[in-house]
Structures are given as C-alpha cells and as structure tokens.
Amino acid sequence: MDGKTNNIVVDIKNVEFLYEDTEETGGSRVLKDVSLQVRRGEFLAVLGHNGSGKSTLAKHLNAILIPEKGKVMVEGLDTSDESLLFDIRQRVGMVFQNPDNQLVATIVEEDVAFAPENLGVPQKEIRERVDYALDAVNMTEYKDHAPHMLSGGQKQRIAIAGVLAMKPDVLVMDEPTAMLDPAGRREIMETVKKLNREEGMTVVMITHFMEEAAQADRVVVMDHGKILMEGTPREVFSRVDEIKKIGLDVPQATELMYLLKKSGLNFETDILSADECVNVIKDVYNAAKEAL
C-alpha cells in the first residue's frame, strides 16, 4: 500500500445500488454513482432526508450490502470479495439507531465481549478489550448490569463499546441519537467526539440533527441517492438556500443569521454555534454604537 491510499480508510467509487424489492423506490436506484472517501482520523457527518439512501450507503461500508456497480474498498480490501468478509467487518464497526435491537447478551460485559468472541480472540485478550472498550465509553461501573436496566444513552454507549472491542479502524453510526432524549444525545456526542479526538478514531456519523453535524470535520449531504454537497460544516451550512430546497434545516444559529441577512442586515451565514452568533451580533452592535 502506498502512502496515499493509506490516508483513505474507506474508498467508495462510483457505487450504484438497487434493492431487489423495488416497490418502495418505484424501480429507481437507491444509490446513483456515489463516490466518497473517508479519511483517516476525520469525523464525517452524513446528512439527508428520509429515504435519500444514507442507511443503504452505510451498509455498503462493511459488506452488509455489495455494490451493483462500482467498488467499495476498506483499507484496500474489496467488499465484494467474500473471503475478506470478516476482515472487513472487523475494520468497520457499525452502530444502529435502536440500542435495544443491537444488544445480544443479558449482561453488559458479556455483550461487549460478543464480537471478540466471534473473532476467536484468546480469552485473556477478550478481557483486555472489554475493559478497554467499556472505559472508552465511560461505562466500566455498569459492566455487571443487565442492559434493559440502563437508559437509552447508556445502552447506546454499550453498543459503541461492543464494536470498539473489535478494534475497528472506522466507527460508522446510523442515526445513533435518533431515539434518545436530549441528555442521551449529548452523552453520545461527547463519547464520539472524545473517541475521535483522543483515540484518533475515524467516525462516520449519519444524523438528522444539524447541531450534531455542525460539530463534524466534514459534512456530506445526500439527496435522492446522490451526494449533493460536501465540505466543512461552515461551507455546507452557509449554502442555506440549497439546503432548504431539499427539505433540510440548518443549525439554529445559522438560521438566525440567514433570517437577519434576508431582512436586509449585513450578516454572513457561515455561523454554526450560538456562541459565534452572540459574538458576531455583539461586534455589529458595538460597531453601530461607535458609529453613532
């Protein structure tokens, strides 16, 4: 492997996909010529309204689905090569929306051990991996609990620990916060950001919360099976009109700036957070005061 490909963890090249059961999509393709590269160590957010093909794309990353045309390469491994199936799945940890439906065992610790057990990891190393994974999501003290006694956010953190125990190169999450309350959402975002910053974990996160996407390094917007926009959150969200046209929202702070600009005031829409928003308004206010 040369140095260049080494910086790309997942390389999606011109992927086309159609489900066998085409009733829901009216016979049209769910993924249309999608190309995307996931870079090592980045936090990539994927946006798009329901049915735009996000989950379908995610399932291509670990060979749950195989492209009809085009290629998906994970660390240089082709997902269409069946002999590499488990090598690929071990490298791409996948977390889904409903935490209840991904936990297998009746004890937290046993659940986290599930993947390394499947991989045939020696007993002593399973122990180490379980301890590491539970620590990484800050759930060590719950290791003997039954999953159904935990909160949604805690369950989802256990699901994350369950895939971390595979020692994946990339963590793919399909709307992991969609079923959680605001406190649970915050827990998950903090956990994911910590993994990304401190452990250098590459993260691909599908979400429909714009505030979450705003915290990513890079945002991809999907629409009707195509990648419509791609760039830093600031670049993407400043294109407010285009985003609204496909039925998505922008972060609240951006929305405010957008409305102020629309009403004739001289504001830029490349604002993502409330803090930034306050600062910009303060500046304008002070400037206006001085001018008087």
Binding site: K59, F86, R89, N101, Q102, V104, A113, N118, P122, I126
Partner: peptide
C-alpha cells in the same frame, strides 16, 4: 435489526468461537 447487528459484529455461528468466561 438484531440479525444485521450480529452480522456486523462478525457473528458466524459457534465455530472457532472463544469465550470471555470459560
């Protein structure tokens, strides 16, 4: 959902499986 989640965690039956607690 569970079947997909189990596949994602490399489940492939009982063969060559090790255990956290022997």
């Amino acid at each position: 959902d569970l079947a997909v989640a189990m596949e994602c965690r490399c489940y492939r039956g009982g063969e060559n499986r090790t255990r956290l607690r022997e």
